[in-house]
Simulated assay, not measured.
Amino acid sequence: MLIMATIGVLQTELAKYLYENLVSVPNIRIYGPKPSENVHRGALCSFNIEDIHPTDLATILDQQHGVAIRSGHHCAQPLHRHLGVNASARASLHFYNTKEDVDDFIQALNETVSFFNMFK
């Protein structure tokens, strides 16, 4: 049980770190509540970047930066309909991820957003 508790603490810290760093990305909309002592978030974040389709974002992150995220409905079509979006991007973490992985992801995400903004 100690191992599972340790993994739980690590994932809570990583979830908070991911959220805190994602909010710095220009034109991002993060779905779900801000993490706090009273609000537990899983170690993932679903989000959209204004004027960039999540699949395009995921493709460039993968092909240009070697960063894998998910895009699509995530088996939550009714929620997407309620939010008024046709898809979202999702970054997910697990116990083998580190804060450095989050930093690398945020850097790659910012570079990808800049790439797409060149075409506006």
Score class of each variant (00 low, 15 high):
L2V: 00
I3L: 04
M4Y: 01
A5D: 02
A5G: 02
V9R: 06
V9P: 01
L10I: 06
L14S: 08
A15E: 00
A15K: 00
A15T: 06
Y17A: 01
L18Y: 03
L18N: 03
Y19M: 05
N21I: 00
N21A: 00
V25C: 01
V25H: 05
N27G: 08
I28E: 06
I28W: 04
I28M: 05
G32Y: 00
P33I: 01
P33G: 10
K34S: 07
S36D: 06
E37F: 03
E37M: 09
N38Q: 14
N38I: 11
V39A: 05
H40E: 09
G42P: 03
L44R: 07
C45H: 00
S46Y: 06
N48Q: 03
N48A: 02
I49C: 01
D51T: 08
D51R: 08
D51N: 13
D51I: 06
H53S: 03
H53R: 09
H53Y: 08
T55M: 12
T55S: 14
D56A: 12
A58Q: 09
T59H: 13
T59V: 08
I60W: 04
L61Q: 02
D62R: 14
Q63F: 11
Q63V: 11
Q64N: 13
G66Y: 07
V67L: 03
V67T: 13
A68H: 15
A68R: 15
I69W: 07
I69C: 07
R70S: 15
S71E: 11
S71R: 10
G72I: 12
G72L: 12
H74C: 12
C75T: 14
A76G: 14
A76W: 12
Q77W: 13
L79G: 11
L79V: 14
L79R: 11
H80C: 14
R81I: 14
H82Q: 15
N86G: 13
N86C: 12
S88G: 12
S88D: 13
S88A: 15
A89F: 10
A91P: 09
S92P: 12
L93R: 09
H94F: 15
F95T: 10
N97V: 09
N97E: 12
K99A: 13
K99C: 14
D103C: 09
L109R: 07
L109H: 05
L109E: 01
N110H: 05
N110I: 09
N110S: 08
E111V: 03
E111S: 10
V113F: 01
V113Y: 05
S114Y: 02
N117A: 09
K120N: 10
K120R: 11
K120F: 04
